[in-house]
């Protein structure tokens, strides 16, 4: 008979790795399944400066290396795999289905699959992805040295990455559909003070133009309806996230955008299935809150395993 884990954690970002840390310290027989190498979205963050305990800040990959080193101290049982389905069998045993057909069983599951960047869904976007359309400034910024780029969005990520891109680009247009930013004030102050950043307010991108590479954007002002063209070499899109929760569709309740609904102890509607981090319906999506979710989820999973509730 195939072995049954106490706990399977799906996803190896800050939520999943923290859950693993707590589960391993509780001596639960735990497996973490990640489709890439551990780290999650933090890997695309050039610099993290709001994680407590690191007053000088540090690159995202370096922070995640520390998370991984920490779980390795406890014997990190992980495997590469892409979860495509989750089912509940008799006696509350959870069956996790992997792409390729393999199945893994566990008494408790923590879903920590995170989120991935939203796309604009406009003409030219898909065709020119990797050819000037990007969702990762730290990956692709250096290809735009002394060129002109646009950033779309007004949240923390958009503003932080716009500032980062000024290290390479000679000009950064920040295009936002509203007339003010949503980003934290400290980021706004830096962006407004940066002479390389020019703001284009109340404006949406309607089309990305170019044959083999991005050449221009077709813009529309939402207030006046006026259309214009902006000549650029690259466009970086940071307009929020969509949850990686397709595999629980129909099994667990989600909000209208697909984020998994839990109570404040990370419990989903099904006993023994927890959700933690960005995949969960909540207001604040940060590394620290993901880690907090992971700790709570592991704690509650331990409680569930020992008491059955």
């Amino acid at each position: 008979m195939a072995e049954i884990y106490d706990l399977v954690i799906i996803g190896g970002g800050p939520a999943g790795l923290t859950a693993y840390l707590y589960a391993a310290r509780a001596r639960l027989k735990t497996l973490l399944i990640e489709k890439l190498s551990p780290g999650g979205q933090v890997l695309v963050t050039d610099f993290v400066e709001n994680y407590p305990g690191f007053p000088e800040g540090l690159p995202g990959w370096e922070l995640m290396e520390k998370f991984v080193a920490h779980v390795k101290k406890l014997g990190f049982n992980q495997r590469l795999g892409e979860v495509v389905g989750l089912e509940v069998e008799e006696k509350g045993i959870k069956k996790i289905k992997l792409a390729g057909g393999e199945e893994i069983k566990a008494r408790a599951v923590i879903i920590a699959t995170g989120a991935s960047p939203n796309k604009l869904g406009i003409p030219g976007e898909e065709k020119l992805t990797g050819k000037g359309v990007s969702y990762c400034a730290t990956c692709d910024g250096p290809f735009f040295r002394d060129q002109i780029v646009a950033v779309v969005g007004g949240g923390n990520t958009a503003v932080q990455e716009a500032i980062f891109l000024t290290k390479f680009a000679r000009k950064v247009f920040l295009i936002h559909r509203r007339d003010q930013l949503r980003a934290q004030k400290i980021l706004q102050e830096r962006a407004f003070a940066n002479p390389k950043i020019e703001f284009i307010w109340n404006t949406v991108v309607e089309e990305i133009l170019g044959e083999d590479k991005v050449e221009a954007l077709r813009l529309k002002n939402r207030k006046t309806g006026e259309e214009s063209f902006l000549r650029i070499d690259g466009i970086f899109i940071f307009i929020g996230m969509r949850p990686q929760s397709e595999f629980v569709k129909g099994l667990l309740p989600t909000d209208e955008r697909g984020f998994i609904i839990t109570d404040c102890e990370m419990r989903t509607e099904i006993p023994g299935i927890f959700a933690a981090g960005d995949v969960r319906a909540k207001a604040c999506r940060q590394i620290i809150t993901a880690a907090g979710d992971g700790a709570t989820a592991a704690y509650m999973a331990e409680h569930y395993l020992s008491s059955g509730s």
């Binding site: 890439l36 792409a99 990797g130 050819k131 000037g132």
Partner: peptide
Amino acid sequence: GIRAIPTLIFFKGGQPVDQITGAVAK
């Protein structure tokens, strides 16, 4: 024309025949 990484390019008979951009699943 690479302007993003990771980019995976598949070559067959000396010609690029397909391309994937970004960290995608196996």
